[in-house]
Design a protein around this nucleic acid. Structure first.
Lengths: 205, 205
DNA sequence: AAAAATACGTACTGGTCGGTATCTTTTGTG
DNA sequence: CACAAAAGATACCGACCAGTACGTATTTTT
């Protein structure tokens, strides 16, 4: 492995990331990825067995990068709510492109058969939902949250993803407003409450 | 337009729906759609200008079908919470395949340029989110919910979609349990609460 | 029942793209 | 500096597929 290889591989991954974000899997050609990286298709096939391998490498690399950021937030100290807010802020502060990588798995998962398929799902889950789950699990232990930890994590991730729409950006003036909205929805629903005099339905005869 | 046409068109739409659900847009061929419908590619191109037109027709037809169901639930009487539960139940009771149609827009939206693109988005939004929004808006009027109505609708839809995962199906014994989870998360967060003594952060000097 | 119009089938084309074979260039090493 | 090994470029192939041209069959209309 020459020293130049690493640079070329990095350029190819970077180029692939941008292209797969802007177009569907099938619409991105190897020639295009290579050209955009400043090399030729031959070079690309020298480093990656095929298109699928390049895609997988790209996605795993991109997700790993995000995972490390989220992990730091998940392992930080403070209340469950503070840590979750911290993680979400990291997420929202990623540039638009960087955030959209998280959506790629959902979009492209149908392109692959099952060995690869679940490999990609695991990569995604370990990057975001599992990091959320670390915090959520602590929240449950501390009596602040109740429910299935994994399901709550997915729910939280789903709510956060709503903030990625253009509409949400227009509604909220800044990220703090977004964060407040997200945590309000999530906690005041999932948190244990001191039921203030007979909240829920009472079976009336 | 001969009488036979309608049947052929319906068969093509049905066939296309099944295939586009099982494979990515680019991986579904016109020959395949036609064969699966019991006709040939020539027949398909007689009724649809091109692959894109067939896809659009299929999706709009499928979404319209769902929309009518949701609309009925949205227009039903009862409390905001009851109506939302009713709509969600209708959604969850659709077969797996029928529900997954709702995800197609998200998956395939990148395949199209902007006239078509927003056309598909509108079709989706009018089918589900806008029906939810009808209920949510009433809830806000009645002082049961607070926040931007459209954003709340999207949030609710996002939470419901979490229930479509295989894991959620395993966690909950039945649909009632799912419904309870979803409404608990959504309402107890979005509903106005009688703040029980100094809930949120107080600026400490 | 002839004519006109619509529905459908068959066969083909033009272009694209993933992948490969092979040649040239660059880089590390003794 | 020689020379092997890796990196990269070029040219090409085979497969596939959207779309078309044109023919035949089946309805409707008159």
């Amino acid at each position: 492995m020459h020293s130049k290889s690493l640079a070329t591989i990095a350029k190819l991954l970077f180029s692939a990331e941008a292209l797969f974000l802007s177009k569907n899997y099938a619409d991105v050609t190897m020639t295009e990825i290579a050209a955009n990286a400043g090399v030729t298709k031959g070079a690309a096939y020298h480093h990656f067995a095929n298109k699928e391998a390049l895609y997988i490498a790209m996605l795993e690399s991109a997700l790993q990068e995000k995972k490390e950021l989220f992990q730091k937030a998940a392992e930080s100290s403070g209340t469950c709510r503070e840590r979750l807010t911290r993680l979400t802020r990291v997420f929202l502060e990623l540039g638009r492109e960087k955030r959209d990588v998280m959506k790629l798995v959902r979009r492209d998962i149908n392109n692959f058969k099952d060995p690869v398929r679940s490999q990609l799902v695991r990569a995604y889950q370990s990057a975001l939902p599992e990091q959320i789950q670390v915090i959520v699990t602590d929240g449950i232990r501390d009596g602040l949250l109740t429910g299935d930890p994994r399901l709550l994590s997915w729910t939280y991730a789903a709510i956060v993803e709503v903030m990625l729409t253009g509409y949400a950006e227009r509604v909220f003036e800044n990220q703090d407003a977004m964060l407040e909205f997200v945590t309000r929805i999530f906690f005041n629903g999932a948190g244990i409450k001191h039921l203030p005099r007979g909240t829920r339905k009472r079976v009336t005869a």
